[in-house]
Each structure stands twice: as structure tokens, then as C-alpha cells.
């Protein structure tokens, strides 16, 4: 276990170093930082002075090391567009994205598991079949179209829910939350459904196929023979054994939820880091791009690491396989 954990940990560090290299290269090769800092009228002496002050005269590995030092402290330089530190802007907008992502993940898990169980138990019922067909369309619909569709239905036609923004937020000092006001909660509904729908269908299909697999096993038939109630068979005997893959996939999907928030945030003009990232791409705002890239990589890599370790801890078969030297 420990050896596996250490190995995975070092792999994660390597991934982060590679991403760091990409982010660092963006600074150095996309445009000339000296150019963007000095105006038209400059002397060669000026250029040389700025080059030295930025450390651009140092060899490549030294520069990279300096960049990593800054990155660890959260220092990615000043945003070209807003004139404030990139990390400060990101920190300001992160709560909005995290709230959206977690609410979406929560909805996806609850509805995904419930619908998955339902469609597995009533596998030939008309409602279950309708849900399955709808989920196929849901998977093929691009996220942004789902968002637009929901806006059209609930904001334009029915006028029930707001179509953009975050509503009123409550400032908790270090975290601005929209979860405590009515307008904040209302504003959260459409974006979180949009963002969570794909993951919900994914979890639903997974739970369904796992349940169908488990329900065929002998111990289920045996439980029936013992005269146990359906409810107890489905939830206490079957569901438990389907949860291992569900946990893994859900964990992995948390990363993509945060990434796909970029699309949802753009559709709903949600003031999170995703919208910030899209705008930074549009205006080639390198410091913000680099900071976002590093932030999201750290998130992805840690989520993957935790899921891997969790999987390893939950499923004893995996432990045997690893220590036996297979793969």
C-alpha cells in the first residue's frame, strides 16, 4: 500500500512539473515579456536592464526553477488585462465555481444513483425505457445547447428562473457564498442542472449496468429464496456491491465538472474562474491562463490521486493484483 501510494504521489508530482513547464513556456515564448513591459521609445540599455531584472539572462533551468518557486507561493505575475495579481483575481472568483461544481456533482450523484436503481429494477417498464432513451440524447447534446434550452424554457418562456449571474451573495470574509440567499439559490438551479446532466446520465447508466450485473448473482437469488423483501434485497444487498465503480467514476468526474464549468459559466455568465479563463484566452492574458492552468492541474492531480488510493483501499482484489506483480 505504502509503496503504491508513494509511486502514485511521485507520478502526480511529475505531471505537475510537466504542466508547470507548459505554463512557464507560455510566459517565455508567447510574445516577448520585455516588449509588453517597455514602450516604443526604449534603448538597448533599457531592454538589457529589464531582461536582467526579470531574470531572462539566466539559463533556462534556473528560470524554470524561479518560476516554480513563484508558482508554489501562488505568484504568477500581474494580469495583462486587469493590472492586478493573477492569483488574487482567481482567488476572488474561485468560490463561485466551487459552489457550482459541488452542487452539480451532488445533484448528479443523487439523481444518477436513484434513476440508475429505478431503471435497473424496472428494466422493461415504459418509464425506465423512456429515461434510458432520453439519457442517450442527453449524452449527445453539447453542454452549451442544454444550457440554452433551459434558459429558453425556464427564463424566457416561463420566466421562473434567472438566466444569468449569481444572484445576491453573502460575504463570509474569505468566501462569498450564494447559497444563503434566495436569489442566489434560484440563480444556481439552471447552471447546476446544465453542468451536472452529463455526469448524471453517466452515473445512471453505470449504476444501472452494475445493478443488472449484481442482480444476476447467486446470492441475490438466495436472498429472494429466503423470502427477504425486495426493498431490502435491492438496497442492502445489491446496491452496496455496485458502489465501488460508482465512487471511482464519480471522483474522476469531479475534475471534468470543474473543467466543463467553463462552458456552463459562459452560457450563464456565472462569475467564476471558467469565465475568467475563457476571457483570458480571448485576450491572450498569459498570467491568468497560467495561474488557472496550474490551479486546475493541482485539483485534477489530487482528485485522481485520492480516487486511486481510495479505490485501492476499498477493493481488496486490486491489492492482491498489485503486490503479485501483475502489471
Amino acid at each position: 500500500m505504502l509503496a503504491f501510494a508513494i509511486k502514485r504521489f511521485f507520478q502526480s508530482i511529475i505531471v505537475l512539473l510537466v504542466v508547470g513547464l507548459v505554463a512557464f513556456s507560455m510566459f517565455n515564448f508567447v510574445g516577448d515579456p520585455v516588449d509588453s513591459m517597455l514602450g516604443q521609445e526604449r534603448t538597448d540599455a533599457d531592454v538589457e536592464r529589464v531582461r536582467i531584472s526579470l531574470g531572462l539572462d539566466k539559463p533556462f533551468p534556473v528560470q524554470y526553477y524561479k518560476f516554480l518557486q513563484g508558482a508554489v507561493k501562488g505568484d504568477f505575475g500581474i494580469s495583462y488585462r486587469q493590472g492586478r495579481p493573477a492569483s488574487e483575481i482567481i482567488a476572488e472568483r474561485l468560490p463561485a465555481t466551487l459552489e457550482l461544481a459541488f452542487v452539480s456533482a451532488f445533484l448528479a450523484i443523487v439523481f444518477g444513483v436513484v434513476l440508475g436503481i429505478f431503471t435497473a429494477i424496472r428494466r422493461d417498464g415504459w418509464l425506465a425505457n423512456t429515461i434510458m432513451s432520453l439519457s442517450l440524447i442527453g449524452v449527445s447534446l453539447p453542454t452549451f445547447l442544454i444550457g440554452i434550452l433551459l434558459i429558453y424554457l425556464f427564463s424566457v418562456e416561463l420566466g421562473w428562473l434567472p438566466s444569468f449571474g449569481r444572484g445576491d451573495v453573502v460575504d463570509l470574509g474569505w468566501w462569498k457564498t450564494g447559497l444563503l440567499t434566495k436569489s442566489g439559490l434560484l440563480a444556481l438551479i439552471l447552471p447546476s442542472i446544465t453542468l451536472g446532466l452529463y455526469q448524471m446520465t453517466l452515473i445512471m447508466r453505470l449504476v444501472r449496468s452494475e445493478m443488472l450485473e449484481v442482480l444476476r448473482q447467486d446470492y441475490i437469488r438466495f436472498a429472494r429464496a429466503r423470502g427477504l423483501k425486495d426493498k431490502s434485497i435491492y438496497f442492502r444487498h445489491a446496491l452496496k456491491n455496485t458502489l465501488v465503480p460508482v465512487i471511482t467514476v464519480t471522483g474522476m468526474q469531479l475534475g471534468s465538472i470543474i473543467a466543463f464549468a467553463i462552458i456552463t459559466e459562459t452560457v450563464f455568465q456565472w462569475p467564476g474562474v471558467g469565465l475568467l479563463f475563457i476571457n483570458s484566452i480571448r485576450f491572450v492574458d498569459i498570467p491568468v491562463m497560467a495561474a488557472y492552468l496550474m490551479l486546475i492541474s493541482v485539483m485534477f492531480v489530487s482528485i485522481n490521486l485520492i480516487v486511486d488510493l481510495l479505490y485501492f483501499a476499498i477493493d481488496p482484489r486490486l491489492r492482491v493484483g498489485k503486490s503479485g506483480g501483475a502489471k
Binding site: 505531471v15 473543467a259 491572450v284 485534477f300
Partner: peptide, 18 residues
């Protein structure tokens, strides 16, 4: 490790800078 769409966005952003 990263979703394809994010990779594509990033490459697009970098290439745009070039």
C-alpha cells in the same frame, strides 16, 4: 488526466499568442 476540451482550449490560447 485533462479533459480534451480543456486541452484544445489551452492549445488554442497558446497558438493565438504566437
Amino acid at each position: 488526466t485533462f479533459p480534451g476540451i480543456l486541452v484544445a482550449m489551452l492549445i488554442f490560447g497558446i497558438a493565438k499568442g504566437f
